[in-house]
Design a binder for these strands. Sequence first.
DNA 1: TGTATTTTTCGATATTTTCCGATATAAAAT
DNA 2: ATTTTATATCGGAAAATATCGAAAAATACA
Lengths: 132, 132
Amino acid sequence: MTDDLRVLVERLKAVSHPLRLRVLALLAPGELGVCQVAETLQVPQSSVSEALKELRRAGFIVERKEGRWVFVSVVPQQELTPFLRGLLTEAGNLPKVLEDRARAKEVQALSLPSVCAKVQTVASMAPEAVRA
Amino acid sequence: MTDDLRVLVERLKAVSHPLRLRVLALLAPGELGVCQVAETLQVPQSSVSEALKELRRAGFIVERKEGRWVFVSVVPQQELTPFLRGLLTEAGNLPKVLEDRARAKEVQALSLPSVCAKVQTVASMAPEAVRA
DNA sequence: TGTATTTTTCGATATTTTCCGATATAAAAT
DNA sequence: ATTTTATATCGGAAAATATCGAAAAATACA
């Protein structure tokens, strides 16, 4: 019968997490590559990967592969559920999210290969910038 | 700086929980007494009380005292944030939530004192109906 | 093929959360 | 005042989740 409730709870859990919410909100304006996300948020790349896995499981984002890169983005407009639409509206006003988006713009100005290369190493030098 | 993000995450966590989400959705159509909620959902009264505490902390519900009873309800319309509004819309379609609401109607047909008295004892006899 | 590069999965530990009986508090009724 | 009744809080064991380095897997290109 009904574990629709459980499904909804799982989707809520997916965003009840500082990094995952940041990532989701970061993607709302448009797709980004995985390593661009890691560089923008200054978190270990593996953490971004796990966050993306959850967001994908919850049906909030989709991915597109291009060469050796993976680009992720929020699901298309018409697939936004009421709750997700509201959440993105609300998150889009948070100062931290706006900061993140500004930083993403700077990162996007760089060449993708250079950003990805940087991410490999930088993680080990940014030990506490991790938490939200 | 900004831990608006953390605040939003806390609010999401508050509803990322089967019982708390059920309680919130149950209250959407209108206020109920605490023991009516416990009886409707067939969970220990202490669990309902803790669920309500979290929902209050998150700013989703308000309480009203009348005599020895406490009635709880969702915050007024105009205070609904986009995310909460969307969530209630979405939850309001779930079969389990509709079931719960139907059961609440039956419970409301009984006298409040009798329901409250029942709740005191019934909890210990419903060991596994608790989850979701 | 082999090698370099990007992303995902795994493992181990630390932290947080859940759950509910027992008990405390508060407010009415006697 | 004492008792009853409704709700809140506490305790603490069990379960779930977070974290991130290390290793694996996947992909392009030489």
